[in-house]
């Protein structure tokens, strides 16, 4: 219904990203998401560059989490939720796939676009190892043998900087880990299936400062290898971990720019008001 108007407003909002030369791994075009009849985000057009960290900031209730959940079709799992518009995932060979196309299956989409949530969500009935291997069971390149699974689990845990802490108790319950360890476990679980993109929804909001720092370091290490989108309410965190930042307000994309530029010389007055702490 709102496709037309959302496309135009999206085109306006995307003005700031024309100078990006990098390939865009994931790009939304005129994305509008509804809860029932109320639109939570309107006409968002935003590109996410390959092998980099993109941060999304904004005051709470601005729709940044909703937008993130639209990027791997998680938004529609809520009853009464609906999405208009396109999200294009570009493969390495240049082929572009609209994840909202009729032929696209949300389950298959999510295998390529992983997600980590605000609160750690280890599966309580599974051991640490099985938690990390949980996604392998449903991916095409899933492990065929227990040995291969062990290798993948170790690799994922090493990449998530958790291996040294848990290598001696892989078969014990994942709920016994600390909050920060649980969150890194969830990151390892998302990494294990080798997704194209990882979406993180305020991954450190429920963690202590030390755990937060570890996760931020982790994002730095992963930056060169994969495409990451992180939603955060913490501007300092966005400044620390991301190379590009997008600012959301009241369900609209106000501005997107390289992080340094957005924080030092924002082009929109509302962005400036937000980053200087005048609201939010």
């Amino acid at each position: 219904m709102a496709t037309n108007s959302s496309l135009t407003s999206g085109a306006l909002a995307s003005g700031g990203q024309h100078h990006v030369t990098d390939i865009q791994r994931l790009a939304s075009e005129g994305l509008t998401a509804y809860f029932g009849s109320a639109a939570a985000i309107r006409g968002i057009t935003l590109g996410v560059p390959d092998r980099s960290v993109t941060a999304i900031i904004g005051p709470s209730g601005c729709g940044k989490s909703t937008f993130l959940r639209c990027l791997n079709r998680m938004h529609e799992t809520i009853q009464g939720a609906r999405v208009d518009g396109r999200v294009v995932l570009t493969a390495r060979d240049g082929k572009a796939l609209d994840i909202y196309a009729k032929s696209a299956n949300p389950i298959a989409v999510r295998k390529h676009i992983g997600m980590v949530f605000q609160r750690p969500t280890p599966f309580p009935t599974m051991s640490i190892r099985d938690n990390v291997a949980a996604g392998l069971k449903v991916t095409a390149n899933g492990a065929s043998t227990p040995r291969r699974t062990d290798e993948i689990v170790e690799r994922a845990l090493r990449r998530a900087a958790l291996w040294e802490e848990v290598k001696d108790r892989l078969r014990t319950s994942a709920v016994a880990l600390s909050g920060g360890q649980q969150q890194r476990l969830c990151i390892a679980r998302a990494l294990a299936t080798e997704p194209e993109v990882i979406l993180l929804d305020e991954p450190t909001a429920s963690l202590d400062p030390i755990s937060t720092q570890r996760i931020e370091e982790l994002l730095h290490e992963l930056e060169g290898e994969m495409t990451i989108v992180v939603v955060t309410h913490n501007m300092q965190q966005a400044a620390r971990v991301s190379s590009r930042t997008a600012f959301f307000l009241n369900g609209e994309l106000i501005e997107t720019a390289p992080t340094r530029q957005l924080f030092t010389s924002p082009s929109d007055s509302r962005t400036e008001a937000y980053i200087t702490g005048r609201f939010g």
């Binding site: 995932l89 796939l97 696209a104 389950i107 298959a108 390149n141």
Partner: peptide, 9 residues
């Protein structure tokens, strides 16, 4: 690895 997002539900 093939990037497949189709599939039946």
């Amino acid at each position: 690895r093939p990037l497949r997002i189709v599939g039946s539900a």
